[in-house]
Amino acid sequence: MAEFPRPPFTSRGLQAGAIGVWPLIPALAMYGVAFGVMAKTAGLSTLEAAFMSGWVHAGGAQMAALQGWADPVPALAVCFTTLAMNARYLLLGATLRPWFSELPSYQSYPSLFVMGDGNWAMALREHSQGRDDAAFLLGSGLVMWTTWVSSSAAGHAFGQLLSRPETWGLDFVLAAYFGTMSVAFLRATRDLFPLIVGVLTAIVFERLLPGAWYIGAGALAGSMAGALRHDHAR
């Protein structure tokens, strides 16, 4: 097993992360407000919306889970949706192993709790530039977590003013966000294969099954298509 040095984990690193993350905050706050509005539309209370944001802390998963929200809540389906939406974190977390492996658990595991796409990318960029203070991820993540929870609660409160969120296009925020993300994840022609399989599977399952299962089904089929394609190419 390779030996990795123990990285510094200081209050200066924490501060660097908290300051460095600011470019991501306006979009995150808008996204959080949109989630709050959606949560209100789905029938959640302010406290429930804030609790979900603080405890689950994953915008795409939370919004996708709300798409399949019903009374009573289909707990199994929303959990499967959460797993499907957050499966990418498995890879993000894996990439942190060499850098974080010698950190004590009380530093690495709270850092992973506040890991998101944005601050993960920022932290890895810092690391590649030789700034190896591992507290950067926690510092940036705590600011994102605070923004996410407070903007979710604020959106839920504003929801009373916006009687019809679809008039403002707010039901389209997730689609818009994912549309922009598709540009970053479509790096090569071979990425079209899992995309198309995911699209077609989801369209079929959305017509066959109620709730959020279609996202998990599309994600599973699409990603497996990507892995099969990889085998084929080798």
Partner: peptide, 22 residues
């Protein structure tokens, strides 16, 4: 590399699964 390819394909598959029905 196969597991990595599977995980690498996950984000674009999720995006497709959300955007397809919309």
């Amino acid at each position: 590399s196969r597991v990595e390819a599977w995980l690498n394909s996950m984000p674009i598959a999720v995006i497709g699964a959300v955007l397809g029905p919309i």
